[in-house]
Amino acid sequence: MTLKQVQEGIVNSQVWKSIFRVGIPNTNRKRVLAVLGSLILHLHPVKVRRSGVRMSYTWCMGGTSFFLFLVETVTGLLLMFYYRPTIEYAFTDIMDLREQAPFGIMREMHRWGAHAMVIAVWLHMFRVFMTGSYKPPREFNWNVGVILLVLTLLLSFTGYLLPWDQLAIWAITVGSNMARASPGAGTEGPMSSLMKLGDVPLIHAGDDARFALIAGRSIGAATLLRFYVLHCMVIPLAAGFLMAIHFWRVRKDGGISGPL
């Protein structure tokens, strides 16, 4: 049996055909059907501009951001099996993961993936700007992108606290201290001291913007839980939803931009 025969045997088997209905896409008709018939591939149109396919045009950075988001989701889910978001366990769970799990690189992959995703999203934005792709009709998609950028940063920020080591709590302390200075909404923000009812200040350490962010007067158990839920549920879902809109709009705005 030659290799060719093996290949044909597999491709013509019932199992294969039940999954990939069109077989090897070696004619134009089959190429069209391959893309249309697959949920994942039909994110793409059947045909694309030659200029848009070039790696030197998009730098692949949008796709890279998306791929890294998927990496983060998979590794993040695996971490969730090991990790309990309480002050007693958070740090020791990570410690265990580090010492006990053989070949454990999920935590590494999750952390480096997070850093890489932030950089990839920046570079993607940079590319979109340099090709002028935010201009009509893509203004709205640029805005969806900006929100995705903010969500990416928030994901990284909330995740940073979870290992509950010195690096984590002090980075989040420095970051969240800024909220104290929100004009009119933080205890040390401009104008906040003017907001009072008679002698009772309306804005104090127990109800200001920082309190809302970290669920307490200082970083503690409530902060950890809050950041965990935000990090593993709320923000990934929101980001996933916006990505769906983002990709949909890329198609509806006429595909990858090109000279008019």
């Binding site: 896409p25 190429r31 069209v32 893309v35 501009r49 030659r50 200029s51 090109g258 000279p259």
Partner: peptide, 13 residues
Amino acid sequence: EKTESDEKLFTWP
């Protein structure tokens, strides 16, 4: 980019 943008390629491959 203009020299290529009118030409369309198949997504697959």
